[in-house]
């Protein structure tokens, strides 16, 4: 079943950044999006979340047209969003940050504190500490945990490796795979780190010059050059 689909989407700010985007994510998949800096990856995820409105085309979630739904409605319907640069709430405690994720997937009353604390024990240890005092890697874990707590069906993940130590980067990619395996959460992520793309993605779209230039699957994903051509500046 298709969880998320963008059909012929054109979106941008004053001028379009992305044009005629067609993309689909099937239930249980981990799909990557690669592309150079400034090509419109964040723009794409924000459009999926409802933070940006496309000027043309439709966004479908769970088979329903959600193009006109605001982000808070989409969140409550089960889309968990992890913004680029993490954007945790620095002045709320770790625990309060996690609580803010409870509205995600609001209709199911399930919360996933146990699973989140199992994945990231450091969050339990530092539950009473302000989010702003965590290290970059810990903030990334908090942002992921916060999006997971409400038990989303789809996770939108914007450059999880950015500004995180290499040793933690590997861990986080494995964690996302585990989340996908154990909680059956579908994942759409954006990334420029080759290693992360190879560990995580089942399939991968490449964006170039505002359009989807390629779709990489199976063996192409292990071919460094195939991906690298869309990352080179």
């Amino acid at each position: 079943m298709t969880v998320l689909a963008l059909e012929d989407v054109t979106v941008g700010y004053d001028t379009p950044v992305l044009r005629g985007i067609d993309l689909a994510v099937e239930e249980g998949e981990i799909v990557g999006v690669v592309g150079k800096n400034g090509v419109g990856k964040t723009t794409l995820l924000k459009t999926a979340m409802g933070l940006l409105e496309p000027t043309e085309g439709t966004v479908t979630y769970d088979g329903r047209d959600v193009t006109d739904d605001p982000p808070d409605v989409r969140a409550r319907e089960g889309i968990g969003y992890i913004p680029q640069g993490r954007d945790i709430f620095p002045g709320l405690t770790v625990e309060q940050n996690l609580q803010m994720g409870e509205h995600v997937g609001g209709d199911s009353d399930v919360t996933r504190y146990e699973e989140v604390y199992d994945l990231f024990p450091v969050l339990e240890e530092r539950a009473d500490q302000d989010g702003g005092t965590l290290s970059g890697g810990q903030q990334q874990m908090l942002a992921i945990g916060r999006a997971l707590v409400g038990d989303p069906d789809l996770l939108l993940l914007d450059e999880p490796s950015e500004g995180v130590q290499p040793s933690i980067v590997d861990r986080i990619s494995e964690d996302i795979r585990a989340i996908n395996d154990e909680l059956r959460t579908t994942v759409l992520f954006v990334e420029q780190n080759l290693g992360v793309i190879r560990t995580m993605a089942d399939r991968c779209y490449a964006i170039d010059r505002g359009e989807i230039a390629d779709e990489l699957t199976g063996p192409e994903l292990t071919d460094e050059d195939a991906i690298a051509q869309y990352l080179a500046v």
Partner: peptide, 23 residues
């Protein structure tokens, strides 16, 4: 909980919205 939502909205409205808060 209401207070937490208010402070989250104050600190980062866009992220609060993306987490399901009707800001």
């Amino acid at each position: 909980t209401f207070g937490t939502r208010v402070r989250a909205t104050m600190q980062d409205e866009e992220t609060a919205k993306a987490l399901g808060v009707d800001t």
